[in-house]
Design a protein around this nucleic acid. Structure first.
Lengths: 207, 207
DNA sequence: ATAAGCCTAGGGGAATTTCCCTATATAAAT
DNA sequence: ATTTATATAGGGAAATTCCCCTAGGCTTAT
């Protein structure tokens, strides 16, 4: 029985090395290579496949979840284990939809990381207990809806432009309560906390 | 048509002579005088004005940029062309604010120096391509974000992350009123309407 | 030395947003 | 036909933010 070969993908060198350091000396596990971005690991995967891919979400070139979606198509049997500091609803659901085998928070402990890798390598799933908790809530809130309606997007943009509910209402000839309702729906769908985050989301995704 | 009269100001004799040597024999250009410091050239300018003043920044008595600011007042039409080895943000922005007509790095080539002098003498501006590049970055870094203090930027980012005044306050160990004050100052400085616009600004400029 | 900018922080009331609800109508999908 | 999503909108109270003000201590520049 050969060791479990691991690829690590993370844009921060410290994190890459930190994970690698965790795993050095662990029997049955061998870190094969480290990658700072999606493109480099994609290239490498053409030649050689690890047994488990440890993947961060915040990559510079391709979002980790997008990458996971792609890999599901090109390498459907490659088990992906996400390690991310960002555990909000959107990311969790995106990851699950993309079919990742596990999800760990970035402050995971050594023993749990090893446990997760062994599980995932043997074809099972592993979601840390914190993650499971959040994921359940996220699924309850919005399993299938990640897209905003046209009206919701419109209002998100107007909010980002600095208009109040009242101003948006009179501009769109609807009640300010309706504006509020659309805003609330948008926040729920995206798994956000408040209007500030919606504005931030709108700026990065709608402009 | 008489030649273009040049004053050269630089504390290093080698540089003064070097520039002069560059310009000797160039038709249409005549080096009128060399000065090792700001005071000597100030005295000279009371009697006689050149067509272009070549000015170094690192002078022993008065900083070249300060000198340029003064001269803008006393001799507003005198075109100043900075030649400096120091091309950091502060100097570039200072020079531009002082209204200098051109800026060259100290390793400028003969042809470019002549070109710059001719341009400046005819009332145009001349910034070498290296300088333009750096200047653009400097302007982006400073006139844009440097308008906000570090604290203000910090709070703008935290707001964009979706934190309330209270949460930001306890995270930074300051009162929520102080957070509000910083936020208000940031909004005023940037000429915005409200926090939504500040968040939008923060997302595009600070992330 | 004086001014300017920054960081701090409070008072108090007005305005706005947020958070619970409920509700109807319409179009699209199953 | 029934569900689902969308768009609309209100009540009411709590929470938060906004807007005006003042103000002291500190550093930096002129």
């Amino acid at each position: 029985m050969s060791k479990i070969a691991i690829y690590i993908v993370d844009d921060h060198e410290i994190v890459r090395e930190g994970i690698a350091a965790f795993l050095i000396g662990v029997p049955d596990i061998e870190v094969k290579a480290l990658f700072p971005d999606a493109m480099s690991v994609l290239k490498s995967l053409e030649k050689d496949l690890p047994d488990v891919l440890l993947l961060d979400i915040g990559l510079p070139d391709i979002d980790g979840i997008k990458l996971a979606e792609r890999l599901k198509i090109s390498h459907p049997k490659l088990p992906i284990l996400i390690i991310s500091g960002n555990t909000d609803d959107r990311h969790l659901i995106g990851a699950v939809k993309a079919g990742v085998k596990g999800f760990l928070p970035k402050d995971v402990e050594k023993t749990e990381l090893c446990e997760a890798i062994l599980r995932v390598a043997s074809g099972k799933k592993y979601f840390s207990s914190e993650i499971s908790q959040s994921l359940q809530n996220a699924l309850i809130n919005h399993l299938d809806t990640a897209e905003l309606s046209a009206r919701e997007k419109e209002i998100a943009i107007l909010l980002a432009d600095g208009l109040s509910f009242r101003e948006i209402g009179s501009q769109l000839f609807i009640s300010e309560r309706t504006v509020e309702a659309h805003k609330n729906n948008a926040i729920k769908k995206l798994g956000l906390r408040n209007t500030m985050q919606l504005v931030a989301w709108a700026v990065t995704n709608l402009k």
